[in-house]
Design a binder for these strands. Sequence first.
DNA 1: GGTATATTGATACAGTATATCATGTCAAAC
DNA 2: GTTTGACATGATATACTGTATCAATATACC
Lengths: 166, 166
Amino acid sequence: MHPTVAEPTAPFPASTHDHASCRDWILRRAESLCAEKKVRFTPQRREVLEILAASHRALGAYDILEHMHRVERRPPPAAVYRALEFLLALGVIHRMAGRNAYFACTRPEHGRGEIQFWICRRCGVVGETESVVIAGEVPRLAATLGFQVGAVNMEIEGECQACRGC
Amino acid sequence: MHPTVAEPTAPFPASTHDHASCRDWILRRAESLCAEKKVRFTPQRREVLEILAASHRALGAYDILEHMHRVERRPPPAAVYRALEFLLALGVIHRMAGRNAYFACTRPEHGRGEIQFWICRRCGVVGETESVVIAGEVPRLAATLGFQVGAVNMEIEGECQACRGC
DNA sequence: GGTATATTGATACAGTATATCATGTCAAAC
DNA sequence: GTTTGACATGATATACTGTATCAATATACC
């Protein structure tokens, strides 16, 4: 099972949170999910997740690439995209379509419902919520349209509490 | 003021709707909005909107470019992007971030609330709704996060009624 | 160890979008 | 009617995002 530590962060990560343990939680969850699913958490995949888990910011694939400092040579873009694809499938990162950017998921368990991404346009930090109201409203709207729901993506851009204080 | 014709289409455009008048409505609304705002609805901008209004599908910028048949030469990509930017600002088209695609807005008046985009993964047709429930839920969630909402983008991918019938 | 599978490396390229500077067009002021 | 200035477009180059393909390497399992 997953590490049963406390929820790593609030829905929107406060600047004061214990990020060392938050970061560890993200990595340990990935480890245990890989063990569960019998897939390999290779050094390359770990490195990409570590880079994302180092902050709560959404990073582009090429931003991640720049952080991958190898002694000999930098890996090709496809290496990053392969790792991102793997981590997305594992459920430990999310993709922000509106920004072509990726970030580490910090919520212990997302249900089948819809997730809302909140991104601060000043500091770039991303938060996540899972509203039961929206999770209920989407199927209701879909029913009136005769629409069969596949994937839902909801992104809210604005300013976080910390940045508004400045 | 805007043309006071009937609402052009249902939230999800039926295959049976009167598309000729729907198309005209989109173009005439753009004309009257440009007159209101004292900006120019140039032939190039009109052509891009006509291409989008020809269907209810979301098209990529380069798809649009291919439809721009000039006698002499095809305009450069930047021309399309400039027209798209103009039409976005005018409020007559929307951008689907998840697809890097653009489509003509068919809803008479969107309030300040959130719009939901529904895109069929089979036929590519896009519908729009404006849920009062979600419009109320977003500020409520934002308040609990201390987040100041800027732009909201919500996209639902799935299968429309017509395609499910197949 | 030998084989099948998964992963990574290497190279090339497709698709999306913008920067920059030159040129053209329109409409109002003179 | 010409000038002028703002807006719009053309032309060129390039940045950014993501994928295809095939070879080489590592891992797991027999």
